[in-house]
Design a protein around this nucleic acid. Structure first.
Length: 473
DNA sequence: TCTGGGGTCCTAGGACCC
DNA sequence: TCTGGGGTCCTAGGACCC
């Protein structure tokens, strides 16, 4: 069994955040100081780059308005499922609604707001379409997040007979015409500057920052607004009298190298128009870790229910790992209490795997160690770490090869069923109590038709830009 | 910023080896 | 048993992002 020979390598104490959430602390510490020069060189691209950053406006809310035309012009909010605002349309923002605001407060400031649950699957489809549009202009498209991308436009002026600004405008218009959503765009010499551009004016903004104009955009920008500089580093920089992006960019190299670590040295170059972050066009096919967490309302102290949540998270994480042909060496799980304190445990797996059946014993063992009777929990999480390519997951002398191969076939068949009939068509018994909680919401016929039209001719996997599995049962 | 869900990279420092 | 010097690998934890 998978549980045997598995070794526990550490317990995360109560109150300490587990690795995936680490670094969220509020303590205001200086970033690591460098006393020796960094050994890792920073590569600066010598060619003057033209990098575009595109950022969809109020993305989730805009998608909803595009799919439900009757919502256009109305204050629309997504995030119903978590009780706070995930995204707000500009109509809602104009009424004082902000990201992260509680929904009861929304009802106070904007009683006629249309509040919807987030529908990630549909938003992903819009996202795929947006990236497709970008690829018509350049093959160098980096899908940065569901609603953001970087495009390397360097050298494309001739091809498109116009300036980089014209090119950006064309992209913007195409997105609006074909997707029914507006986007904001920034174009400049580096990714960090392009991001500043896209944020400069929203919605439907278009900002080109040339080398000569950089200082105009940095002089009034708080340094903490720069991509990659957070609250801690801003606080640290303040001690040296640096509060604006321009003051930071204007510091001499000696200061930067002596006091700041590599990421900040890189940002410093980027702000000065020297590109160090390349646009990475290759689709992501590798993960260091895969995590699944879920909050449940109301909080629960029911052991069976909480374990079933953990079990469901494990199954989901494994599904994703198998989709990318990855196997885990480490299993981390944690429980979050009502007061947001976390307790977690990290376990070494004897043989890299992405099969829940091999991991349940370990999960159970870890759970029993961290679960405290009579405690209210609000969420659970599972992390698969130490991921390696599945073919590299080699057998040891003690493995039951026949059994493992049989399991591989079973899971391959299960993945095939889920592909055809929907996620969780088949499920492990332990996850069942979690499943009973899921509510199904009907979709109006006309909306379904509109979606189908928007995304016709593609199966779900292709629409999501995922590799299509070849299923042999 | 009162807290959803999913990630990345970097550095210090310990363990272990010669 | 102690003392040096130098290297590699791994883990913990910080900071940041959308």
């Amino acid at each position: 069994m998978g549980g045997e020979g598995c070794q526990k390598i550490g317990v995360v104490g109560a109150g300490l955040a587990p690795p995936p959430l680490a670094g969220r602390g509020t303590a205001c510490r200086a970033p690591t100081k460098i006393t020796i020069m960094t050994t890792q060189p920073i590569t600066i691209h010598s060619w003057p780059k033209a990098i575009l950053h595109i950022d969809a406006d109020a993305f989730f809310a805009s998608c909803e308005q595009a799919i439900h035309p009757e919502l256009k012009g109305k204050p629309v909010i997504t995030g119903k499922e978590r009780g706070i605002v995930s995204a707000a349309s500009y109509e809602a923002k104009g009424r004082g609604v902000e990201r992260g605001m509680r929904l009861f407060e929304v009802k106070r400031v904007c009683p006629d707001a249309v509040i919807l649950p987030s529908d990630y699957e549909t938003y992903s489809l819009f996202s795929v379409r947006m990236f497709e549009i970008l690829r018509r202009f350049s093959p160098d498209v980096e899908e940065y997040s569901i609603d953001e991308a970087f495009v390397d436009l360097t050298g494309l002026r001739r091809t498109f007979h116009g300036s980089y600004g014209d090119l950006a405008k064309k992209i913007q218009d195409t997105a609006e015409r074909e997707l029914g959503i507006t986007v904001s765009i920034g174009v400049s010499l580096s990714k960090v500057l392009a991001k500043i551009g896209s944020k400069h004016r929203k919605p439907k903004g278009l900002t080109v920052i040339s080398g000569r104009e950089i200082h105009n955009y940095l002089s009034k920008l708080p340094v903490g607004k720069v991509w990659g500089i957070g609250a801690n580093t801003s606080e640290f920089l303040k001690k040296f009298g640096i509060t604006t992006a321009l003051q930071f960019a204007g510091k001499d190299e000696t200061f930067i190298k002596r006091r700041l670590s590599k990421p900040y040295q890189e940002i410093w170059h980027e702000l000065n128009g020297r590109s160090v972050y390349p646009v990475v066009a290759e689709p992501k096919k590798d993960y260091q870790s895969i995590s699944k967490t879920r909050t449940f309302t109301p909080p629960s102290e029911d052991e069976v229910f909480i374990f079933s949540q953990l079990s469901k998270n494990l199954e989901n994480a494994c599904i994703k790992a198998r989709r990318y042909d990855l196997a885990a060496n480490k299993l981390i799980m944690f429980l979050r209490q009502q007061d947001f304190r976390d307790t977690g445990v990290e376990m070494k797996i004897s043989r890299p795997t992405a099969y829940p059946a091999e991991l349940f014993a370990l999960l159970r063992e870890g759970f029993l160690e961290i679960y405290k009777t009579g405690t209210l929990y609000r969420s659970t999480g599972v992390v698969l770490a130490g991921l390696v390519a599945e073919r590299k997951a080699q057998f040891t002398l003690f493995d039951d090869t026949t059994r493992i191969l049989k399991m591989a076939r079973v899971y391959s068949a299960l993945d095939g069923l889920s592909e055809r009939f929907g996620k969780h068509t088949v499920q492990h018994g332990a996850s069942l109590p979690a499943k009973l909680q899921v509510q199904h919401e009907g979709e109006r016929g006309d909306v379904a038709v509109r979606k189908a039209e928007l995304f016709k001719g593609e199966n779900r996997r292709q629409r999501l830009g995922l590799p299509v599995l070849d299923i042999k049962v």
